Simulated assay, not measured.
Amino acid sequence: MENSNNHYCLSITPSSLELLSIIGFITLILIRVLYIIHRSSQPRSASSQQKPLSTLIVLGSGGHTAEMINLLNVLQKNSFTPRYYIAAATDNMSLQKAQVLENSWLNEGGVEEVGSAKFMQIYRSREVGQSYITSVGTTLIALAHALWLMIKIRPHVILCNGPGTCIPLCAIAFIFKILGIRWSYIFYVESIARVRRLSLSALLLYKLRMADQLFVQWPQLKSKYHRAHYVGRLM
Rank of each mutant, 00 (worst) to 15 (best):
N3R: 05
N5C: 00
N6D: 08
H7M: 08
Y8Q: 13
L10C: 10
T13R: 03
P14R: 01
P14D: 06
L17P: 00
L19V: 11
L19Y: 13
L20K: 04
F25V: 01
L28G: 00
I29T: 09
Y35D: 11
I36A: 05
I36H: 02
H38I: 02
R44L: 02
P52I: 12
P52A: 12
L53A: 13
L56E: 01
I57E: 03
I57V: 15
V58P: 06
G62D: 10
G63I: 10
M68W: 09
L71M: 08
L72N: 09
N73P: 01
N78T: 12
S79A: 15
S79L: 11
Y84C: 02
I86T: 01
I86L: 04
A87V: 11
N92F: 06
S94A: 12
L95R: 06
Q96T: 14
Q96I: 11
A98S: 09
Q99F: 00
Q99C: 03
V100F: 01
L101P: 00
E102A: 13
N103T: 10
N107W: 06
E108G: 13
G110D: 01
V111W: 02
V111C: 08
G115D: 10
F119W: 10
Q121R: 12
I122Q: 06
S125W: 00
R126G: 04
Q130T: 05
I133R: 06
T134A: 03
T134R: 02
V136T: 07
I141E: 08
L143V: 15
A144E: 10
A146E: 01
L147M: 09
W148R: 14
W148Q: 12
P155E: 13
H156V: 01
H156Y: 03
V157A: 02
L159N: 08
L159A: 10
N161Y: 09
P163H: 04
P163K: 03
G164W: 04
C170A: 12
I172K: 00
I172T: 06
I172A: 04
I172E: 01
F174C: 06
I175F: 13
L179Y: 03
I181Y: 03
R182G: 09
S184I: 08
Y185F: 08
V189F: 15
I192T: 11
V195Y: 06
S199V: 00
S201C: 11
A202V: 07
L203G: 00
L204M: 14
Y206M: 02
M210D: 05
Q213E: 14
L214W: 04
F215I: 13
F215E: 12
F215Y: 15
Q217K: 02
W218A: 11
W218S: 14
P219S: 10
P219Q: 08
P219G: 10
Q220M: 08
K222P: 04
H226L: 14
H226V: 15
R227P: 07
A228P: 00
A228T: 15
A228E: 02
L234M: 14
M235V: 12
M235F: 10
